[in-house]
Design a protein around this nucleic acid. Structure first.
Lengths: 221, 221, 221, 221
DNA sequence: GATGAATGAGACTTCATTCAT
DNA sequence: TATGAATGAAGTCTCATTCAT
């Protein structure tokens, strides 16, 4: 069952040893409901009903509704960042990848897989960040800062090798991330019901990131 | 005053002849509040207070709270699309623009300017689309369909001229739109407080869309 | 009807011009319920039911339950103190009263009448002061300070005339107030159902305050 | 440690042989919490937390929250009354005390000491009696009745000796009790933080009870 | 005996909406 | 047209109490 699949994925991230069955059900229901209706549009009574628990049970485990939100988002955010937090990331990648393309492909595929697994929580995260200063700050500190720092190192490295265009690393990061997220938004949020040849589209996206969309007419000749 | 500036912009879009002063204030307050707290997180009483009208007055002009949301989003969405709806858009652009670059630059700059003017409403629109089927449908019909249709024509045109890479037009559209929106999200939503050299960053973005980020080492030589 | 009697008394104190009928009913119900069950033991739903209004109506007029409490207690507290706040109280009384006995009798009868009228609110006030720092402070500032200040002047005055025992005025005040309150507590709180010859008991109390309970055996002779 | 002091005092009153450590902690916590927030304003979970026991443990020892209240108040009430319940109290006192003053002083000092030791429970008792018919009845039967009966005898006795004013004994009791309680309320409830010369103030109070506050001007001469 | 997860009734409060003025 | 008092459903959260472990 699809539901169980991502439930399993999700609890691999949580410290689920200490959780009761009901608590787990509450978390999964919250994710479903928050993703569908947004945090403000969801009611704890609906979450409780969907989880098959009494409403009071939610508040035994999570002091407030907001606590529930943070309990969902925080660990996914943290886990998403894990690969970026390895020390000397760029050395490791340097050994493994001769080219930016290789690096980009690896990172892209790897993190996209993660996001796919946790798409509901990622959706919640992106939707709620603008309304919750704590989330915004957490996102800033946990995600942006590390990504910026680590990727800048790598980009500079490949720029020095003459393999990357000489634009501000931050611009390259934004551009790359946008392209990746653009794919994800289309794929999982706007048109999840369409048929997608994922492998193909990812390949195209990487190609466009690397070589853009332009062909000089001379080349054609 | 900044507030008045975008108020003016906004009412150029609305059919404001028939509106009372109070109605206008209600609209502007809604935009402020919805943008800050999201639709579900906003209360009509807060909007009324900010607009300086009685709570009941809102419902004299808009049957429901949702009506108010739609009244804000719909005209901006429509106006945003105006340039895309001109018949035979590709002929017009063909005459005016020899190159995709020219076309892209014109479109980019032009629509970015529009979005900047209406950033609050655009923010609301993007945030609320996932939760309101009507909005989603309206967005699909009004925006996506036309954009897809018109831009596909243009892209095919430039592909035939050998100027664009031979990838599915829809992929190119998504990629381009993502890059543009990535800039906007960073610029106006995530880090509006940073200093941005808009002209420079837009130029970089266009360049990356067109030529990607990669430099073959041969070229360097 | 007894209820209407003290309702009238109560609203002579409030600024009831701007109140709706429902708001008045809410206040009266609160007084009844708070006096019977205490603040914490009362529920807004019971108050609403007794007032014949929707529960939401309470919160249109009083932001919180505590607001309701303060709205009841504050004006009664203030009005109770009015006679003490007249400037140069002691001069006025000096002209009117040759003796401490005359003064005490006047004050006693006068304020007892007031308390009788507002016995329910006074009960609430005394019961809730220990649990609400704001109330305690308000009581301290509004009541105790003024009473202490004004009465001290008067007591010193009569001490100088040799009419009052040479004890610390504050002790005399406490003793006198205790005796008066002791009467009120017995009369209206502990045994309201007993038959009381008010005039007689008040007279006795005044006499005991003035002359104590002791008779030296010499006097008997 | 101050806390332990009154804990010891308290358990001298309880039948503490059969109590577990946890049960004792629960009682002490209840007293603290009830005294601070009132019965209705206290939650069993707070009491449990303060006692360092699980929420369920309270209900293992006390069937309901109210049971807990009664378990605290009843024994203190009973013990307070012990000296009044001795048979033929007035004979005993007659032998020991020639004068009402002696008797009053002894009683006053003795019972004040007791109240001081159990001030928290006395506070709870006084605050909750108005809201709990059982408590009120218990108070009536255990305290008022005995006090009234025994003291009436003694007062009549001293009236017959010509030592006490010829007023209804019940009035003298009320007056005396009020004066004593007035001192206690000021001392321990309203202004516990002030500096008090207890001995001095108690002496003054006894003096005022006996001889009142008035001095005829002739005496002065 | 002790625990603490679970409960569900009910607490306070908010809110979109109605309607008499 | 505009008001704002009134509503009652629904929201979040608390609480005394139960019960399996």
């Amino acid at each position: 069952m699809e539901f169980n699949e991502w439930a399993n994925e999700f609890f691999q991230i949580m410290d689920d040893e200490k959780m009761t069955e009901k608590q787990k059900k509450i978390l999964l229901s919250s994710i479903e409901v928050f993703a569908e209706k947004g945090y403000s549009g969801s009611s704890t009574s609906e979450i409780a009903k969907k989880a098959g628990v009494a409403e009071g049970t939610i508040f035994r485990h999570y002091k407030t509704k907001k606590d529930l939100l943070l309990s969902i988002v925080a660990p996914v955010m943290a886990k998403f960042m894990a690969p970026f937090i390895i020390k000397d990331l760029h050395k490791i990648f340097d050994q493994e990848f001769d080219t930016y393309e290789g690096f980009l492909r690896e990172l892209f595929l790897n993190r996209i897989e993660f996001i796919q697994k946790h798409i509901a929580v990622v959706k919640i995260m992106l939707q709620e960040i603008p309304f919750h200063p704590e989330l915004k700050q957490q996102f800033s500190e946990t995600v942006l800062q590390h990504v910026k720092e680590k990727l800048t190192g790598i980009i500079v490295h490949f720029q020095e090798k003459g393999e990357l265009v000489e634009l501000p690393p931050i611009s390259i990061i934004r551009f790359t991330a946008s392209s990746v997220f653009g794919f994800l938004v289309g794929r999982f949020i706007l048109f999840p019901e369409n048929e997608w040849d994922d492998e193909q589209v990812i390949e195209e996206t990487i190609q466009m990131i690397l070589y853009g969309v332009h062909r000089s007419e001379k080349i054609e000749e």
